[in-house]
Amino acid sequence: MAAWLGAAGPAHAENTSRVPSTSPESLVGRPHTIAELEAGIIALPNAPISRRQEGGETPFGTIGKGDATVLVGMHLLYRASPAFAFGAGFLLGPQPTSDTQYGGQTGLKRSHARSYLLVGGELRYIPFRSKTLEAWFGLTVGGVIIADRFSTDTGEKVPAILGVPAVTVRTEGYTVGVEVGGSWVFADRWVAGIIARTDRWKLPDSPQCTSIGDCGTLTGTVESIQFGLTIGYRIPL
């Protein structure tokens, strides 16, 4: 009996040591997925939506002389190794800056707003890693859609079935950029962080216009700067 117990003891200890750990440290050491939400600010330093509306609209007031607005989005990243992660995501401006004194070429009392949607992929390199902190930098590439919305604020109200007094001009292009950030593992699998990004947008040289002279307000090369806070959840595979 003693011999049997002696043989069974080590086998039991060996099986217990093979139970996989779910601690943050163990996840970094093996491939896993990160679902990450972002909220922040996007600024176009050299591209106000109009001469009257410089600095944009953010919870912190105006920023610079270009456009600036709130930015939200989501990233889905695959952490292939402790040093590298790649994935894709999207960013959009849910509350675009609005110019309520826009007149266009018609002289009508009108308003103009401009919103942004960015979709693309990213690659991150994480050179600094500790038990709870990480620092990284990366590259981004993707597409951008700018929507200029023009709305006439005068005239009689009519049923929506007869049309709406607004038109949207879309401008599409591609974007490349660089980003840096840091992460803090504050709970099992939960990660908070900061991120800063600068992009260069390549858009058509000539804007699209409507029949009454409303045109897209961004052309050629446009610089953008983004800053955000992130919250992420690590999903073991």
Rank of each mutant, 00 (worst) to 15 (best):
L162C: 07
R114T: 15
P94H: 06
F86P: 00
I161P: 00
G232M: 03
G213F: 09
L71M: 14
E38R: 15
S23M: 02
E122W: 01
G29S: 12
V169P: 03
Y233T: 14
P48E: 06
F128P: 02
P48W: 07
S17C: 03
D199T: 11
P82V: 08
T97M: 03
A47H: 05
G138L: 02
L118D: 10
G29E: 15
I195M: 06
R129K: 15
V191P: 03
I231M: 13
G93D: 09
A39T: 13
T22A: 12
D214W: 01
S183G: 11
R124M: 14
G87C: 09
C215A: 10
Q105T: 05
G181I: 02
G173F: 03
A35Q: 11
T168A: 14
R79P: 01
E25P: 00
Q226P: 01
G103A: 12
Y174R: 01
G228Y: 02
G138V: 02
L133I: 07
L118H: 07
G103S: 13
V70D: 02
R197E: 07
M74A: 15
L118K: 06
E38Q: 15
I49P: 02
S130T: 15
G182T: 14
T171S: 05
P24I: 01
A88K: 00
W184L: 15
G120Y: 07
P48G: 02
Y233A: 09
G177F: 03
P165N: 11
Y78K: 08
P236S: 07
E122F: 10
K65C: 00
G220M: 09
G104L: 05
A187W: 06
E57D: 13
A11C: 03
K65H: 08
G73P: 05
P96D: 10
F186R: 06
T140E: 07
I41D: 06
R52H: 10
V222I: 14
A2C: 06
E36W: 04
L77V: 05
D148G: 07
G107A: 04
G73D: 11
L162S: 10
V176A: 14
V222K: 00
V70H: 03
G138R: 02
A47F: 00
T58K: 08
I161A: 15
G228R: 07
L117Y: 06
V28E: 14
G121Q: 10
R114Y: 06
V70M: 12
R234E: 11
F227R: 04
I212K: 01
A43C: 03
K109C: 03
L237R: 05
H75C: 02
E122L: 15
Y174K: 00
C209Q: 04
L71K: 05
T152D: 14
H32D: 06
W190G: 01
P127Q: 11
D99Y: 03
M1H: 12
E14K: 05
V119H: 02
T219R: 04
P204K: 13
G9H: 07
G120M: 12
L44P: 00
P24N: 13
G121P: 04
T175N: 05
T175M: 14
A3L: 13
G66S: 01
L123T: 15
G142T: 01
G142D: 05
Y125H: 07
G89H: 06
E179P: 00
G73N: 11
L123E: 10
E172R: 05
